[in-house]
């Protein structure tokens, strides 16, 4: 799925890192500013330009089973979210809600010049095995690993159970 137009696009936008998102380069993964210079161009076409926004974890009603939602915006070429981990939770998996159950997915496409959007009743992260039971106002670090762009680390706030982005 690397059929990307190789042309350069919009300038790099630092401001795309909004809200509670804090991006840091982790584990040698090249990040944002660096991703134009990575070794993956060439065959793969234009580099992805990723930013994460609107991330939140609704406070789980009981115990450690939580969902996580966020949006990965992409001002560049196609990429793929392949893994999510956290120093604060044992297991994070990617799921999609179907009408009656959930199915786990191994990776999620981040379309070129588009967005990968997590949402309630749709694509979500399933977070289990919290080291410390989450409370309102906590932040959980999520390390999002992409096929081409390396790892982006974000601090995701724990919000009210019924929170939706765009509401205070």
């Amino acid at each position: 799925m690397s059929a990307t137009a190789g042309r350069a696009t919009l300038g790099f936008r630092r401001t795309a890192l909004t809200g509670a998102v804090l991006a840091t380069a982790l584990g040698g993964g090249a990040l944002l500013a660096a991703c134009g210079a990575g070794g993956q161009d060439g065959a793969a076409g234009g580099p992805a330009r990723l930013s994460v926004a609107d991330s939140y974890i609704p406070l789980p009603p009981a115990g450690g089973m939580a969902a996580g939602y966020l949006t990965v915006r992409n001002d560049g070429g196609q990429d793929q979210l392949v893994k999510v981990t956290s120093p604060g939770a044992e297991s994070i998996t990617m799921h999609r809600s179907t009408p009656s159950r959930m199915e786990q997915v191994g990776s999620l496409d981040v379309p070129a010049h588009g967005a990968l959007q997590f949402s309630r009743g749709g694509t979500h992260l399933m977070i289990m095995g919290w080291q410390k039971a989450p409370v309102l106002g906590d932040e959980l670090e999520l390390d999002l690993t992409f096929a081409k762009s390396g790892t982006i680390s974000v601090k995701v706030p724990v919000k009210e159970l019924t929170y939706r982005p765009g509401q205070s």
């Binding site: 009603p61 115990g63 799921h95 809600s97 959930m102 009743g121």
Partner: peptide
Amino acid sequence: YTSCPDVCPTTMGDIGV
């Protein structure tokens, strides 16, 4: 079911609100 992270708490939470 309670270990459902997405649809179940969202639905019941919204009704609760």
